[in-house]
């Protein structure tokens, strides 16, 4: 378990470096265990405004406003949150707001909570239907480069992109704690 925990921290650190390099200034989030380290780093960074949300859909609007004001942002959430953002994605889509979402997956790899399965299994399909570009990362070693590529297409090409971080990455044993 010690090795697993270290690995978890490591990919978060690498991803945070990528977010800093992309000049991310607002990090909006509804927490997930898989995002714990990233959220801590965002809160500790003076150049980043962490925005805790009551619902993930708020994040789409917050980051649209941030872009209007000249700041890039990212939205962190769990796959269940994808169900909450669908209509609001229409705003980002229609206005071609850049949108970078980091989604930690539930309901797919050794899930113990059956209520997580429906949304987890539907996540890719509904994001695709809403016009979001999907990048998946199931190996911790490839998460940072995947986020980097996603940030480029989001901010340089003005698109909505979701990086789906597989439940396998964090390890299903963690969920039962």
């Amino acid at each position: 378990m010690a090795t697993k925990k270290k690995k978890k921290t490591d990919w978060s650190k690498e991803v945070f470096k990528v977010l800093k390099k992309a000049d991310i200034r607002q990090i909006a989030y509804v927490p997930d265990a898989g995002h714990t380290s990233l959220i801590k780093m965002a809160v500790a960074d003076n150049a980043i405004k962490p925005v805790s949300l009551t619902s993930e859909q708020e994040g789409i609007a917050v980051l649209s406003g941030a872009w209007l004001g000249g700041e890039a942002g990212a939205l962190l959430m769990q796959s269940s949150g994808v169900g909450n953002v669908i209509n609001m994605l229409g705003m980002a889509n229609e206005c071609r707001f850049p949108l970078l979402m980091l989604v930690t997956m539930r309901g797919e790899w050794g899930e113990f909570n059956p209520w997580q399965v429906p949304m987890g299994q539907a996540t890719e399909t509904v994001l695709d239907a809403a016009g979001v570009i999907i990048h998946r990362a199931d190996d911790p070693a490839e998460i940072a480069e995947t986020v980097e590529a996603a940030a480029k297409i989001a901010f340089d090409s003005g698109r909505m992109v979701a990086v789906l971080i597989g439940q396998r990455v964090v390890g299903f044993k963690d969920w039962t704690k």
Binding site: Q26, V51, A61, L63, G65, A66, G69
Partner: peptide, 9 residues
């Protein structure tokens, strides 16, 4: 919320 993101920026 759009106003919030803009106000923070």
């Amino acid at each position: 919320l759009t106003g919030l993101g803009l106000a923070l920026a």
